[in-house]
Amino acid sequence: MPNKDNLIIQPNGEVASRTTLLTDAIVFDEEKRQKLIQILRKVPAILDVAKKLSEGKVYQAHFPPEVLKRIKDGSARLDNKGDGLFSAHIRDVKTGRMAGRVDLKEITPDLMGSLSELATQQTLADVVRRLEVIDEKITYVLQGQFNDRLAEVESGIHDYEQAVVASNPDVRRELMVGAVQKLNSGRNKLIKSTDFSFIDKLPRGKLGMLFSRHLDIPEYVQSKAEFVVKATRSIIEASRYLVMAYSDLNEPDSLRVSLKQVESDVEVFQDKTREIVRWLLPESNLHESLTAISQGVLPSIQDLDEVPQKTIVVEFQSKEIAPPEGV
């Protein structure tokens, strides 16, 4: 199965591996890249540079971390010195050579604020993709067992799906808020109510194992572990939709708080899952799924904190920003 986490769509339609690109950068997916192109078109300095670029070649615009930092602390507003620090670099993707530099002092704070917002949204989209990868790993061992997924999380997902297609902004917001409430509540209940007590009751010594009422302890653990995986799948789904809902509401800080609230419970959840893994056949699918779970059920809050430290990279062709004359 392809690892979506590592794939991005380039402007020429080709799918490229994210790992072949910069690791300390935010690379936009096609939808957000198009939005950013719209922003870049409004900047005369970028238009001037784009007009001078060769047609047909792919370029990358690099916005250094300094740009986001200065948008955040407001100092971008005061920039009128044009000292070259507050600028974006344009590189030829094929040769890696610098093709131009864009002074950003003339860009309005609103425009740059949109860039910052897009960077946060892209980070959240990357978080969702990572959760999808874990979800796929777990789904593999749960084929045919979806029917009794917990109703509250499922209902939250339905609200989210209705919200994204709602044309009335008020209805959309109302449904999105409802989805957030149900997803948060459903996820928290699952985290608190998943039963791990069986793992503490298992015998550890040889005598205890010999006289245990369970004939085959690993088989018993496996039957219990399947329920844990099922609950975890719902937790991950709830988390995935919560990230998307908070992203849609443009409230990354609320997402941060919602994650913080369940952080300690999730740590216990992951510790217990790590313990279950030790009772399962190391090469089994269930072992692999639970190992993935024990490494992280929730998106990392760190991802959001790191946004201002990353370079924003956007690929484009000159005609996308400065259409040829007569078009």
């Binding site: 298992l202 194992m209 010999l210 004939l215 085959d216 690993p218 030790r278 009772w279 399962l280 190391p282």
Partner: peptide
């Protein structure tokens, strides 16, 4: 897999040995 204190086998392999004996 790491073993528990005082054991030579991980919980799975230890329990599996005893499951075989009991069966």
């Amino acid at each position: 897999t790491k073993v528990d204190k005082g054991q030579e086998y991980c919980p799975y392999h230890l329990a599996n040995q005893y499951a075989k004996v009991k069966k």
